[in-house]
Design a protein around this nucleic acid. Structure first.
Lengths: 217, 217
DNA sequence: GGCCCTTCGATTGTCGACAATCCAACTGTA
DNA sequence: TACAGTTGGATTGTCGACAATCGAAGGGCC
């Protein structure tokens, strides 16, 4: 019998599933920052009892997406400008590390996949859907960290990305032109392909500064 | 009435307290990697019911300290060499960002506090307790990230530090001489005090490589 | 009118009990 | 002896119910 043909079945736990659903809803903006999440109501809506639901909430609290006030309830975290800055600072830390890792191990292969993501951004820019290019943008950054092959960097980055989405929902930032947005990403990918991690790092820092400046005037 | 004289009382939730206790126990090595944590037993020992306990477990699972196998239970994560490498990679990412932040905002003040932590290491080295210097070592790194003033970097780093402790417990790594260990940290602090973040970054990278090499031969 | 106290409804925090699932040991068969 | 099937004990997953706490509305007092 051929070995390694089958992946072990992973049964996701119920709290993990619930947490994902609520996390996505928060990222989409379906739950506005600051609003309270009533347990009974959510449990009824999801078709589970309060037990598993509360376990899921603890996950999201640990992640920093919810804040808990004892005996009062759980609330979607509301972020101020300091949080915006902090999110982009932390994202820079993670993505810079990813750049160095990719540029130091597989520059060409990694950059090729990143260029594919850039092309996806170009395709998204051609559509009238304004949300599409933002999603493609975030996928670029998610891919960059994935390519680094570090489970811990990836996990940290995932939460940072949902927080980023919350920022964007709150402040509806927009690029004036999609061209600049695309070329910035392309520049990073090209620098990586050349193994020039210093340049890629510098370009990323500028890219992050730009994004932050669009959020905070 | 004078304003701002009182801090708001923060009532830590029960799951948060339980999670901290178990997290500390894991960091200390009281729960060896790979062992199963029975809910009933733990609940009885902590004097709570299984409800809040399970909520705490979800926190630790989200943190990556426990792994959950459905219908089988929760186990302390067991780490291999890839995990060791990944932990030090992620720590480098966070601490490099902290260095740049401290060196870029308050180099002298930050470095002064770091030098204090170095002196604490020297004091610990003078004691026969071999664990003391390791704790002082980790406090140096924790302080470095605290000085960056980023809640997100700090939270990420805290989990990485407990994972680091798990590594050390598993492999009992030791420096041959405490002098080298202290001088490495002193060098980083001095580089920061001069605002030379590039040098500090380079020294930290070497410091991390050294630590990893002592773990993985 | 303004302030404090009390009461009430609603929500959270906690617990015990039941059902579902899994692992290990045992039994029977070829 | 080796293997498939069965049974039993123990643990996890889920639920409903009760107690504790909080915020808001109402009433009384100065």
């Amino acid at each position: 019998m051929k070995r390694g043909a089958l992946d072990p079945v992973v049964q996701e736990s119920t709290p993990a599933i619930i947490a994902r659903k609520i996390r996505d809803a928060i990222a989409r903006g379906d739950f506005a920052p600051g609003v309270q999440l009533g347990e009974a109501e959510l449990a009824k809506e999801l078709g589970v009892s309060r037990g598993p639901l509360r376990e899921a909430m603890q996950r999201l609290t640990q992640e920093g997406l919810l804040v808990s006030y004892r005996n009062r309830g759980l609330f979607v975290v509301s972020m101020d400008q300091d949080d915006f800055r902090d999110i982009y600072l932390a994202r820079s830390a993670v993505e810079v590390a990813a750049i160095n890792r990719v540029a130091g191990t597989d520059p060409e292969g990694g950059a090729a996949k990143l260029m594919e993501a850039v092309r996806a951004m170009e395709a998204a820019a051609a559509t009238p859907d304004g949300q599409a290019i933002t999603e493609a943008d975030m996928r670029f950054h998610a891919l960059l960290v994935e390519l680094a092959g570090s489970p811990r960097l990836k996990k940290m980055h995932d939460t940072l990305l949902t927080e980023t989405q919350m920022c964007l929902n709150a402040l509806k930032s927009t690029y004036d032109t999609a061209d600049k947005r695309i070329s910035e990403h392309k520049g990073i990918a090209e620098a990586i392909s050349r193994g020039d991690s210093d340049l890629a790092e510098k370009l990323l820092a500028e890219h992050m500064d730009d994004a932050l400046m669009r959020l905070i005037p």
